[in-house]
């Protein structure tokens, strides 16, 4: 999810009390696995996509509270050494 400013090793702050809106990065459960994706509403249909699009966007039942686990509000990134 480098385009979104999320790099390997980063810590994510996840808020479960916010209702996800289209365009936000979310923590989701897909096939019983936790995953970080961008939530997107396309013509009223909810999708989960990685960016860049390494896998096909997943169509989501937005009412299923277990699929959309929480909204990623902040990313903790450690500056690297040169």
């Amino acid at each position: 999810m480098e385009k979104s400013g999320i790099f390997s090793g980063d810590y994510l702050v996840v808020d479960r009390s916010i209702q996800p809106i289209s365009g936000q990065v979310v923590l989701a459960v897909v096939n019983d696995t936790f995953t970080v994706k961008r939530y997107h509403l396309e013509q009223g249909k909810p999708y989960l996509m990685s960016d860049p699009m390494t896998t096909k966007p997943v169509l989501v039942a937005a009412t299923d509270q277990h699929t959309l686990w929480g909204v990623v509000t902040y990313v903790l990134h450690k500056p690297c050494l040169y």
Binding site: M1, I6, Y11, T33, F34, T35, V36, S50
Partner: peptide, 10 residues
């Protein structure tokens, strides 16, 4: 505990 936080993939 930061060392025991859940790890996820994108």
């Amino acid at each position: 505990c930061f060392d025991e936080v859940l790890q996820v993939q994108a």
